[in-house]
């Protein structure tokens, strides 16, 4: 039985991991919900975000600059992928969409390997995030606390766009029924470009923010992608609140189980998913009959 301080510390780790999963999964879920495309390149895009940070931080020590640079690069990459490839697959069967995004993922990962090698790279923790913070009952790495705060702000921004703007209104309607949005006079395909690009930026930023905490390798996104698939099933396919809540639940389950026996952490996650699929197949926030 682990000690209480160890459990509390793991709970904080779960919060950090959960926030990260929430950001990764919200990108995945809005792309799936609106475009109907399950993006298997999501994990590779996570790694691309981390490498963009790695490159920028080699030339400058400004974390803010890295953040902005990452936004820009991911936005361009998202637009490019949608216009050149994804767009051609909207009317194709699901398996074609899976194959093409899976292929994009392989190409991106191998490009990273060709450019940077397969060895792990280190991205430094920003100067203002070094050391540990005294929380009274617990001493916790400062950067991880900041990570939670930064992601919370990004998710809030995404929430405001989705729930307080006309574009967000179209996206939310499109997640439910893209055909009806078209019948109501809106060219929904135009919104698809934006949604894909925003989803790619979200996952890229997640990779970038996570980079200082882990070893940066071309394959670093693979595990995250598998977990974020579980998250969107937990939360309900296409549901943004579902991705956020599902991400936090998944993060806590993985971290708290690790406190007892780390080899069971993923097993518990999949067990929970199986249980939920039996009790509530549409997920926590999903509506019945969606997708």
């Amino acid at each position: 039985m682990p000690s209480w301080p160890a459990l509390v510390s793991q709970a904080f780790n779960g919060l950090a991991l959960g926030a990260l999963l929430a950001l990764v999964s919200s990108g995945l879920t809005i792309i799936l919900g609106t475009l109907g495309v399950l993006n298997f390149a999501h994990g590779a895009l996570f790694a691309v975000g981390a490498y963009v940070a790695f490159v920028i931080l080699q030339y400058t020590s400004s974390f803010v600059l890295a953040l902005l640079g990452c936004c820009g690069v991911m936005l361009l990459l998202g637009i490019l992928l949608e216009r050149v490839i994804i767009r051609l697959f909207y009317d194709r069967p699901d398996e074609d969409q899976i194959l093409v995004t899976y292929g994009i993922g392989i190409v991106l990962v191998e490009c990273l390997r060709a450019a940077f090698g397969g060895n792990a790279q280190r991205v430094p923790v920003p100067s203002w995030g070094r050391g540990a913070t005294q929380l009274g009952f617990l001493i916790y790495p400062t950067y991880r606390l900041q990570l939670i705060a930064i992601i919370a702000m990004l998710l809030l921004g995404l929430y405001l766009v989705l729930y307080r703007t006309s574009v967000g209104l179209v996206v939310r309607a499109g997640i439910e029924n893209p055909a009806m949005v078209g019948i109501l006079g809106i060219n929904v395909r135009r919104a698809f470009l934006l949604v894909f690009a925003v989803g790619v930026v979200a996952v890229g930023l997640a990779g970038m923010l996570y980079a200082p905490v882990v070893a940066v390798t071309p394959d670093m996104g693979a595990n995250f992608m598998a977990q974020s698939f579980v998250v969107i099933v937990l939360g309900g396919l296409g549901s943004f609140p579902g991705a956020v809540v599902g991400g936090l639940i998944a993060g806590e389950i993985i971290s708290l189980t690790s406190a007892f026996n780390s080899s069971y952490s993923e097993v518990m996650l999949y067990a929970l998913m199986a249980l939920l699929l039996v009790l509530r197949p549409q997920g926590l926030f999903g509506s019945e009959g969606r997708v």
Binding site: V170, A173, A179, V181, I183, L184, G185, I186, S287
Partner: peptide, 20 residues
Amino acid sequence: RAIFGGLTVEENLRVAALTA
């Protein structure tokens, strides 16, 4: 009918009015 179930009545109307 194809009502957007997750949107409120007013949001359904706003979506419809957007391009009119």
